[in-house]
Amino acid sequence: MKKEQLIFDERYVGSVAVEHVSKFYGENFEVKALNNVSLQLFTGQFVVILGASGSGKSTLLNVIGGMDTVSAGSINFAGVDITELSDKIFSQYRREVVGFIFQFYNLMPNLTALENVELAELPGEMLAIDALKAVGLEDKADSFPSELSGGEQQRVAIARALVKNPKILLCDEPTGALDSKTGKMIIKLLMDMNKKKDKIIVVVTHNSAIAECADRVLKISDGKIVSDETIKNPKSIEDIEL
């Protein structure tokens, strides 16, 4: 029976618990994208997931973000097993809890920067224009994505994720389509957001340099977490080369 209501237990709002999660593909489930993965993420963490192509890092991001279902296991956020949610509540979870940032920004081409951010606005949270201000794009509010550079588009995407003040911010190769300078700017923006320590930021990347800025680094191989390292003194973004 799928859950029809999303009621969080305030005591656990700050954590995500992934327990024995597996994700299989193929007719006979021959592809194991995630194989019995367990981990816990806490508010304030800036987590980088590293891994080769096809290792399962994006799949892990997708199942945490409610973009994909699991084949086995459970994912708990604030006391709610999100794998048990109905479609409708899953949408609510994505709308209220999770913010996504994609490699190719995925902005609506027919909406202006401001309107793209407005799409994700939630009552009682930040205003879209303030989110754009936060990423330094208030002067581009009325521009369409086609009128923006790649970096600007990604900043709009960050503003869109930011506007609803998500508890979890999931970034899938956020610098993958950008030059190193712009990429650095984006990572800096994410790190600045992390200063408030009010959300979990997870960045999936194949670029190990980004991992040097993180306070936790997970390495995935063949659908399994092969290393989980906490960095006591992460580097500043200015000190690394992307």
Binding site: G65, S91, R95, V98, N106, L107, M108, L119
Partner: peptide, 12 residues
């Protein structure tokens, strides 16, 4: 892609 993005944003 647009539709999937809107879904991710939380639109039903």
């Amino acid at each position: 892609i647009e539709i999937a993005t809107l879904k991710v944003i939380g639109q039903n």
